[in-house]
Write a protein that binds this DNA or RNA. Structure first.
Lengths: 190, 190
DNA sequence: GGCTTTATTGAGCGATCACTCAAGTATATA
DNA sequence: TATATACTTGAGTGATCGCTCAATAAAGCC
């Protein structure tokens, strides 16, 4: 009996993710979203409930895609090679809306105000870190990395390096390719 | 003949810097500033002209303080030791309003929208990077670092590491002290 | 003290914010 | 085809945004 929506909800979430990723939370108005997603206010709120609810969906999508892309690559080329390749990938950014990490941007923007979305972003960052740690553990098990290292500590450092790289890659005065290869080179010394 | 302002302009700029540093550009309203600086709208605009103008002053103050603190330390303990100590310092954050870098936060928040303050923040980041490069050059001249390294490349990597560290240090699930000491330890392998 | 000059005050400006809702429209079932 | 059930529309909500300005108060110079 009902009527079907004329839009593809998943596609709208992906589109919203890209806008939020680029412009941030406060930097994206509902006018922006309504225009880009081609939704009137009524439809928007019927579909997503609120700006924050859509942002949360966008964050989740972003984090899921990041983890699945990395684990897929690790299954194909091995854990260490995946970790070494990741820096290049995150700054290649041809069709990506931004090089900086959306989770980091969200966390940095909203943490001070105690916004719930900052906590969600922080949780996703933690998931991502645990994903890195798993790859370091697998690399250790495969003998690609010395057994004396703490994989959690390596993961924290590696994630921090990636966040720095991705932020630096937004700048014109930084050679991100050199930076990425230097970070990757560090993994060979473990 | 005139009447003197009842406030200390420099102190107000420092106070505004701390608020902006913590809450970001969009996250800080004029109401916030008027309340914290104890200024009515009229006085505020007579003193600073606009929110953006005050933000620019705050950025400048932030950058100047950062450079002068680092160069002072380098004069006291030497360039390499200063670079090795800096990571601990930036995350100690007893009386600092945030651990993340204000320049990086500003750049990340406003760059996508083409806001002029993002360019100013980017320029200050470049100054800071050049300051790091100078210290690496001085460390090289002193024989503390191998001559085969490119100091500009080292500076870019070091700055990126610091930005990542400072962002990570805002998180509860990251051991920032370990992170800082790992970054410092890397300098001994140069 | 009188005068000039500037600082201070706070009500209020238009614009924009996230969001609501009643009315109209299209569709799947009966 | 008739009806029930959504989806779509867009004018409009109160709140807040950055900011203005006329009125008032206070300080330095004569």
């Amino acid at each position: 009996m009902p009527r079907k929506p004329s839009y593809d909800r998943d596609a709208l979430i992906a589109q919203a993710r890209d806008i939020f990723w680029r412009q941030g939370w406060a930097g994206t108005s509902l006018k922006d979203l309504e225009r880009e997603l081609n939704l009137k206010p009524g439809s928007f709120y019927a579909a997503f409930g609120s700006k924050d609810a859509l942002y949360a969906l966008a964050l989740e999508r972003y984090a899921q895609d990041g983890v699945s892309r990395l684990t897929t690559m690790a299954d194909e080329v091995g854990p260490l090679q995946a970790l070494k390749t990741q820096p290049q990938i995150v700054i290649s950014a041809k069709e990506m809306p931004a090089r900086a990490c959306m989770l980091a941007k969200t966390f940095a923007e909203l943490q001070a105000k105690g916004h719930g979305l900052a906590d969600k972003a922080g949780a996703h960052l933690e998931e991502m870190k645990e994903c890195f740690a798993t790859l370091f553990r697998r690399a250790q098990a495969a003998g690609e990395i010395g057994a004396h290292h703490d994989p959690d500590r390596l993961a924290a450092r590696y994630q921090s390096d990636l966040l720095g790289l991705r932020l630096s890659a937004e700048r014109d005065d930084v050679n991100a390719i050199e930076l990425a290869s230097d970070i990757a080179a560090d993994l060979d010394r473990l």
